[in-house]
Design a binder for these strands. Structure first.
Lengths: 225, 225
DNA sequence: AATTCCTAGACCGACGGTCGGTCGATAAAT
DNA sequence: ATTTATCGACCGACCGTCGGTCTAGGAATT
């Protein structure tokens, strides 16, 4: 039996590729239907508008992330360990193909993708912040976090990640990889960790979003490119 | 002598009104030149593109904010006092016309203004974060702040304000003003203060972005509307 | 008189979105 | 078993609007 994939999903997948490689605003409906080999009418049979397509797409992307994150939540480990794992899964550190990462970064943080970036963040907050909330509450019980408003904090931390990702994207997209760029990456990452600790009222240096070896590999990849 | 206003500034002003009332993406060049009573060619003589206009516009808006903020920096008061004043000036609390604020909020936080919002934040960070940096450094000297990377912290705090403004905008745009909405506003604001304190390593409850009487007035305005 | 600056608006291609309609599958009626 | 009716996936010509270009002419400056 073939892998049954609905036409709608097929369109979403093709549009996804185009959005991430060319940018949302640089991708026309015509581009999408050409590649999908369908007619205009077909597209608008499945989607109300281009924006509607983007909504469904982001929802799907974030949803796909959810299950593995949920697995982490269910594990019997400390809140801090969960948080570290959660971050590592949310970010793309694991798939350390540097070329792919550069491509993705370029796509998401390009000017023509402000809309996509925003939708992605919005959807992430909607779907993922409840998971963060659970961890925060666990951490409070364990006495390692000290937070007044767990809900708002969860949301706030997720938003903060975006601003830090943006900062890091600058380094990843540098056309030349020297010590300065590498230091910048390390500094930004470390800064992000210390900030989240403060927001959570956690002990300093308790969080480590990226294992040293992973970072080293990334840097090595950068230097070779 | 009449107030000499260049054609370029005139176009910027008119475009500004339209962007803020209808949204950036919903405002066409045609709308602008109609209201400005000029021809297409004239517009494109002064601006390279619609995006160029947006850039100049945001730059001007933020620049107009700069002088009064710079005044605060020069004052001989504590870092904490400066920070409080700075925030109050940056935000629009001072001009407590509730109707105007609702309009502005609606404009800036509408979907059709993601681009504008982003540019505004970008420009704010570029121009205003150096001022925050000075205050942070002063606070460190005074021993009231404890920060590892002042530069990044300044930037981070400014970005955070956006996410909090976004949260507050939800309450301001509520169609019904009841106790729940008011509490939400108060809680969000207080949360923001506590967060900035943590980011700065400042003592709890040392920051007060909005004076109580101002907030009360705002809430009164909300209830009457 | 020449050159530069400014204004004008017809015009362009690309865009997102609409609309009237085709066609094959399935179901209901004969 | 055959016809008829209904459905909805699918099609692509078409529309208005958009951001942006181009050429021509007028105003100011030299």
């Amino acid at each position: 039996m073939e892998t049954e994939i609905s036409k709608k999903d097929e369109i979403i997948n093709i549009a996804s590729e185009l959005f991430f490689s060319k940018g949302y605003s640089n991708t026309s409906i015509q581009n999408i239907i050409d590649k999908a080999d369908i007619a205009k009418g077909t597209f608008y049979h499945y989607f109300k508008s281009k924006d509607d397509l983007l909504n469904e797409m982001t929802k799907k992307h974030v949803s796909n992330l959810y299950p593995q994150l949920h697995e982490i939540i269910k594990m019997e480990i400390s809140a801090i360990e969960k948080l570290n794992m959660l971050f590592q899964s949310t970010s793309n550190w694991k798939s350390l193909n540097i070329e792919f990462m550069k491509l993705l970064t370029k796509a998401v943080y390009s000017d023509s993708n402000i809309v996509l970036r925003n939708k992605l963040l919005e959807e992430t907050i909607k779907q993922i912040s409840p998971l963060y909330l659970k961890i925060i509450n666990q951490g409070i019980k364990e006495g390692v976090f000290e937070v007044e408003d767990p809900g708002m904090t969860a949301q706030f931390i997720l938003t903060s990640f975006t601003s830090n990702s943006e900062e890091m994207s600058k380094y990843l997209l540098a056309d030349k990889y020297n010590q300065e760029v590498i230091d910048g990456l390390k500094r930004t990452l470390s800064f992000s960790e210390r900030m989240v600790e403060r927001m959570l009222g956690a002990e300093k240096n308790s969080l480590h979003f990226v294992e040293v070896e992973v970072l080293e590999r990334l840097i090595k990849g950068l230097l070779e490119a």
